[in-house]
Amino acid sequence: MKKIKTPLDKTQIRNLNAGDEVLLNGTVYTARDQAHKRLVETINKRQKLPFELKGAIVYYCGPTVTPKGKIIGSCGPTTASRMDSFTPILLKAGLLAMIGKGMRSMEVVAAIKKHKAVYFLTLAGCGALLNKFVKNAKIVVYKDLGSEAILKLEVKDFPLIVGVDSNGRSVYG
């Protein structure tokens, strides 16, 4: 199975095709609905983003509360399409990859192709299983959002399937 490591570069991404199964090593940032709204507002106001978006991977995930003595709780993907209206703006600002579940809009697929980015799927509804691939978790910003805060995760062999590749091909056809 293909392994990829962050920081991702365009060459690594170009070699990924829709349907490929990949193991990810490195850093991802969690962000879902409200965090996306805030990130886009920050971009629109031309203010500084709370983390380096250029080349970053965003994971659509709002984990459960971290149990005592554990790194993270249950941490599976949430529905990607809810982020669709924000995604083209983030891709334009340098976001390189996204991890989630389900379909993307035509606009998002077009933006992925334009910016040579990639959308990955991960195991939907398997938050307990995905827990073991997360080796570190640290809060970055938006603590007031609870589970919707942005976390910086270090992952090891995190299982992914290429959902939409850099040529705009989708695994869903």
């Binding site: 995930c61 709002g62 984990p63 459960t64 149990p67 554990k70 709780g73 249950s74 941490c75 599976g76 949430t78 509804g125 398997c126 938050g127 307990a128 827990n131 589970s147």
Partner: peptide, 8 residues
């Protein structure tokens, strides 16, 4: 492991 089946 007593971890929620799903994060939601």
């Amino acid at each position: 492991k007593k971890i929620a089946i799903c994060q939601d």
